[in-house]
Design a protein around this nucleic acid. Sequence first.
DNA 1: GTAAAGTCTGCAAACGATTGCAATATACGC
DNA 2: GCGTATATTGCAATCGTTTGCAGACTTTAC
Lengths: 348, 348
Amino acid sequence: MVSLEDVAKHAQVSTATVSRALSRPEMVAEATRERILQAARELGYQPNQLARSLRQRSSRTLGLIITDILNPFHATLAKGVQDAAEKRDYTVFFFNTDEDPEKEKRALNVLRGHLPRGLLIVPSPKARENLKQVPKIPIVELDRTSGTPGVRTVMVDNAGGAKTAVQHLIELGHRRIGMIVGRLDISTAVERHQGYREALLAAGIPYREELVLPGNHREEDGRQAALALLSLPKEERPTALFVGNNEMTVGAVLAVRELGIRIPEELSIVGFDDSRWAATMHPALTVVAQPTYELGFLACETLLSSLSRGQAALPTSIRLDTTFIVRESTAPPGGLSKGLGKQRRNRH
Amino acid sequence: MVSLEDVAKHAQVSTATVSRALSRPEMVAEATRERILQAARELGYQPNQLARSLRQRSSRTLGLIITDILNPFHATLAKGVQDAAEKRDYTVFFFNTDEDPEKEKRALNVLRGHLPRGLLIVPSPKARENLKQVPKIPIVELDRTSGTPGVRTVMVDNAGGAKTAVQHLIELGHRRIGMIVGRLDISTAVERHQGYREALLAAGIPYREELVLPGNHREEDGRQAALALLSLPKEERPTALFVGNNEMTVGAVLAVRELGIRIPEELSIVGFDDSRWAATMHPALTVVAQPTYELGFLACETLLSSLSRGQAALPTSIRLDTTFIVRESTAPPGGLSKGLGKQRRNRH
DNA sequence: GTAAAGTCTGCAAACGATTGCAATATACGC
DNA sequence: GCGTATATTGCAATCGTTTGCAGACTTTAC
């Protein structure tokens, strides 16, 4: 490894001057600088980030913790973050927790040792506790919130998105609308559930507990929940299903197929979060789409600009709108399918 | 940040002893060690990895460079790598190149500054050149190879997998089999193309250049290529399509739908690489499945064990078998669909 | 021509860990 | 009881940067 000192010798100056030539060019004379840059180039010098960060007591890195990289939603989130970070010359340390608080804890500890300048996290259910261990670096929570005081959040309007979806079902004439909700110790699930209730309330439809089933956000959970809901006696059985995340929606659709129930003639389905799968399956799925990439990108920019004081501080908490996309999986209870491709933008 | 020195003061010993108590416990007297560990716990001490790595001139980190995190194949690869690394207490620095050699170059440079102990890379087309810049750390290429001498590779048997797929089509009676091949400066595409040719050759079917179209691995490329192939005059038009990667397969299927061509009655399709989409679309897609997670996991283990000399050195180059999964998207040229769910394991 | 101001450069001390070597204390052998 | 081996501990150098301070030299002002 070629070091500052090697470059210094080669250019016949001190290491201090080399350092300055590289990071504060205006402090060194034109001629000297040229000579130094030349030498650095010749030797293929690459600064040692470890030494630099050690000395400066902070590194140009960020931590990113997500819960499931195999979920395209999270992969997209990660790409948004990475792109935003790269644009500002930050490197991101990337961890995957599989929703496991223990893994999250380990990730946080490892991260600490690398002195990241900030942290982006999709918090696990126990994040609030885990985050206490972390020294006070700027944190942005994305997609959901752990409720930790003082951290910024970047999320979508979950309640609004859910409400629109359920309203759509109600307008089509559905009265028995089931929901597969997700874990109620995760804020997104709570908020989507809230939206579901609001829509029912607004339409004067009583909330029925037995139509709302929790799930652990995995495909298999969605499948089980859908099987349970759809094996209720005919008059109790929901005529429409609202599913709280993309993976569970896949499971629900598979369950429906297993049971030989036709979509949308016998059952309408709306999912939360769009995906290629949802758009191209048959019948194409009506969904509440999220600006996923933007969510990640914006979260990272928020963090970054809260680091450099020069920038005007962005708001503490950001909510992005969802987009409701009507496709082919929803129709009136007994009836005909509606036209496709209609989009509606939510406000909150 | 609480440092070794803080712990040392608190436990009334020197920093040297604290360091040893933590990393070489057997060198420190029982009682002293206890006292130190206690102090460390009380203060919430977390070692500064930067300082440690600087001193040891190497860090417990790996670099991972993939080309497209949004592609589930690559996301799965990354998860395999991460899991393997975590098991051995390594942290991975993660980069995404979007197949862009410039981004790859930048990633490599950033990586250098962090002194990773090894590098895992899905090489971009220009990787061979970029890798020259990198000091000689152990490198494992995964999924494809750049041809750089001296690096290990972990890949699947692309030629064998492709050959099986095309043989299957031939057995069904197809004679005009098109291929959407991918970029020929990427080894996987070359090998899959090779397998395609071999299968034709073995069956005495002449290779027809006009039935083989390149694509840039994206969905849209697959769509364009399929549109081109399928708008050939009736007698020239392929009756079956073999598509070289998952994203292009999606595009091809969408193109087929646009044209109103029925699968498999009017056109058989086989894709390389399985996915949820392929398994659940209608009709379910016949594919050459890859052991993706294992590919990543194994690549990382290979790298790690080449680092610790104690381990028996694993072979330089690993090939994993693909699995051919017959589903519903293939049938005889004019005819009836075959049974589904049949699997066949390849050998090479 | 001299003092003051300004430019450029180098010295040396950090940052927080690891580690070769030496010092001290203790145990052991005879 | 003395010499030697062994077990613990501390000293201080080191990794590759950055940066406060001071010195050397040049320019400017009067």
